[in-house]
């Protein structure tokens, strides 16, 4: 029995490993073949991949509709911006700090609302995202710079000899972070915690009745998702060298939401595809900028109708949007 299983694994893995190496190869060669503009496009693809992965924890794994994820992203970016420009803390030191700040914010804000179900939670998270954005515009304690934002953010550096300041370096920086995130998330998916998350998505009452502390695991998903969004915010802030509230609008939350839905809820390769679609779409449709949103909306509707499981649904344990909506109905 053990033998057949191993041989099954082998035959299953080798083509997969092959594609994995091919994809890795393309990622390494790409920046040397492309010009700076296209390297930057790939950088933003990386940012969206990281954001998609972070929302995927909350939306894909646990089935919680979070439409305020840009709020966490903003907290990460502003933590970096403020601490760097006002106190001169190095960007790389701020990487974990931003993650912790966003995670702490998520913990405080989500603790009282975590018991809300389905659409109610969705509405509260929209409010949360908007409150964050409006607070930033209102310039509390003269820290956030109001609508203009904060500028003059440093490059990430270690001493003076290792400085990330060119497009190509940023490209590798973000994709290495994305790579480690993917590795960690795959391990989480195949663990007790990943299973608990999926159980909650499938049937909250049954999960609770089988010894899963639903509240704890929902909060963990939010906190972890926020921490990853905070990291994305840190890298984004240092790349653009300035942050302003308009980068963290409701539209940004919607885009992250679409990344997860397009790719397939709970599917890591799906999220990468979704991020590619969202970040490359505006580039491809640049000539018809006026019709961009029209086409985008149509594509989303068609997706929901004909492929609710996403472009690359998880092979096992994935869920499509319809079944998640059904769970809301079942749980009342």
């Amino acid at each position: 029995m053990e033998d057949t299983r191993i041989s099954k694994l082998n035959s299953f893995f080798s083509p997969q490993q092959g594609t994995l190496f091919a994809v890795l190869g393309i990622f390494v060669i790409y920046p040397f073949a492309a010009n700076n503009y296209y390297i930057d496009v790939a950088f933003f693809f990386g940012i969206y991949a990281l954001l998609g992965l972070s929302l995927n924890i909350v939306l894909g794994e646990v089935g919680l509709f979070d439409l305020g994820h840009a709020g966490f992203y903003a907290i990460g970016a502003y933590t970096t911006a403020i601490l760097n420009t006002k106190f001169g803390v190095p960007i790389l030191v701020l990487l974990p700090v931003s993650a912790i700040a966003a995670a702490l914010f998520a913990y405080l804000v989500c603790s009282p609302i975590i018991h809300l179900r389905g659409d109610y939670l969705c509405i509260v998270t929209i409010g949360m995202g908007e409150i964050v954005r409006l607070s930033l515009i209102n310039n509390p304690f003269d820290l956030t710079g109001g609508p203009n934002g904060v500028f003059g953010i440093d490059f990430p550096s270690l001493g003076s000899f290792f400085v990330i300041d060119s497009s190509i370096e940023y490209y590798f920086f973000i994709w290495i972070v994305v790579g480690f995130s993917i590795l960690a998330l795959i391990r989480l998916q195949n663990s007790r915690i990943g299973r608990a998350w999926n159980c909650i998505r499938e049937d909250e009452v049954a999960a609770n009745a089988n010894g899963i502390n639903v509240r704890h695991y929902k909060l963990l998903a939010f906190v972890l998702g926020a921490a990853m969004a905070g990291i994305a915010g840190n890298i984004y802030a240092s790349k653009l060298m300035c942050v302003s509230p308009e980068s963290f609008s409701f539209m940004e939350s919607c885009l992250m939401f679409c990344i997860v839905l397009i790719g397939g809820m709970g599917s890591i390769p799906g999220v990468i595809i979704g991020a590619a679609v969202i970040s490359l779409f505006p580039e491809i449709f640049r000539p018809f900028a006026m019709y961009r949103m029209l086409i985008f909306g149509t594509v989303m509707i068609l997706m929901m109708m004909f492929r609710p499981g996403g472009a690359w649904p998880r092979r096992r344990g994935g869920a499509d949007i319809k079944s998640v909506l059904n769970t809301w109905r079942k749980n009342g």
Partner: peptide
């Protein structure tokens, strides 16, 4: 009330959650 989109084995493994 099973976890419909999880495999049978994963369903049972979920039961072991509280012992881990």
């Amino acid at each position: 009330r099973l976890f419909p989109n999880m495999t049978c084995l994963e369903n049972i493994m979920a039961g072991q959650h509280c012992r881990g």
